[in-house]
Amino acid sequence: MASFLDPLIAFVSAHAWLGYLVLFLAALLEAVPVVGAVIPGSTIILALSALVPGGDLRLEWVLAAASAGALLGDGSAFWIGHRAQREILSTWPLANYPRLIAQSEAFFNRWGALAVFFGRFVPPIRAFVPVTAGALGMPPPRFYAVNIPAILLWAPAHVLPGVLAITALHQYAGIPHHTGVGKHYWMLSVIGGALIVTLATWAIRRRRGRSTIESAAKPVRKND
């Protein structure tokens, strides 16, 4: 991964205007079923966000590019599932990933609309939840009502850790903005990944605990 990200960061530093296209494509491809399970889109976004403090990329455009790519990717996957219905889940290439399809379907059946929200933060099923939601008949207005807020939270959650980490290294460790970025991208990935996984896990467990309490509180009806 280091051999891939270091040249990419150097390339974007030299051609900043293409950085936004890379960010857009990374977010887009990460949302495509099957492709998103192997494309390290989140890592690319997190690594390139480290170029913001040095002025190579602008924060608002980084957030906009990542959000637009995620929205187009999720929306396209949803509409493909919505048009093809459940049949698409058993056709190529999705048929080659029965375990991920089963996990996505179980995730959606358990959480409903919240699966679309939480699924955006949980790889690799992130790439399968939108198409599954469409295939299982989720209404488009309901999908976008959940998906858009999720993306608006997901983008800063992936971008800001890199920005803050490099800013801290510059201010407190004396590392210049334009050096050491490639060497520290693993640290940024760990920080961002930990924050995202922690948030998603906490929210899911909190929801699960609430459901358990509500189920236990329901009165048991005895047969006459």
Rank of each mutant, 00 (worst) to 15 (best):
A65K: 06
I88F: 13
V52I: 07
R86D: 11
V116K: 05
A106K: 14
A127W: 04
Q85V: 08
L100H: 12
Q103I: 12
F108A: 06
L72T: 09
P141M: 06
G69E: 02
G119I: 07
I44Y: 02
T91D: 14
S76L: 15
R86E: 14
R120A: 12
P140K: 03
G55N: 02
I39G: 00
W111F: 14
P123I: 13
T132W: 05
S104A: 15
G112P: 01
P93C: 11
V35Q: 04
P40L: 04
E87D: 15
A95D: 14
G81W: 11
A65M: 05
R83V: 14
L46Q: 12
L63S: 02
F128K: 08
F108C: 06
P123F: 08
I80W: 15
A113H: 09
S90I: 13
W92L: 13
F121R: 05
N109A: 14
A65R: 06
V129S: 10
F143P: 11
P124V: 05
W79L: 15
A68H: 07
I88Y: 12
V116S: 04
I125K: 08
S90F: 14
G73C: 10
A106Y: 07
Q85F: 06
P140R: 05
E60H: 07
L57H: 03
E87K: 15
V35H: 03
E87Q: 15
I80K: 06
I80H: 10
A127C: 13
L51I: 00
P98N: 05
I88L: 14
F117V: 01
I80C: 11
L51C: 01
R110V: 09
L136P: 04
F78H: 05
P140L: 03
L89H: 05
A115S: 14
P141A: 11
A70T: 12
I39W: 10
P40G: 01
A84M: 15
G75M: 02
L57Q: 03
A68K: 06
R120D: 05
L63Q: 01
V38G: 07
A115T: 11
V38Q: 04
V129A: 09
N96T: 14
A65F: 02
F108V: 13
A50W: 00
S76Y: 12
S42Q: 10
A133G: 05
L89I: 03
R99F: 05
G75C: 04
T132G: 09
L94N: 08
P123S: 14
P93Q: 10
A135F: 06
S42M: 08
W79S: 11
A102M: 10
A66Y: 01
A102I: 04
A65V: 01
L136Y: 09
A47E: 02
L63F: 02
G41I: 00
A113Q: 10
S49L: 01
R126M: 09
R86M: 04
L94Y: 03
L48W: 04
M138D: 03
W79E: 13
A66D: 09
R110Q: 13
G81M: 10
L51K: 00
L94G: 04
G54P: 01
M138P: 00
L71A: 14
T91Y: 12
N109K: 15
N96C: 11
P130W: 04
P124M: 02
P123A: 14
R58W: 02
V116G: 01
G137K: 09
L46H: 00
R142T: 05
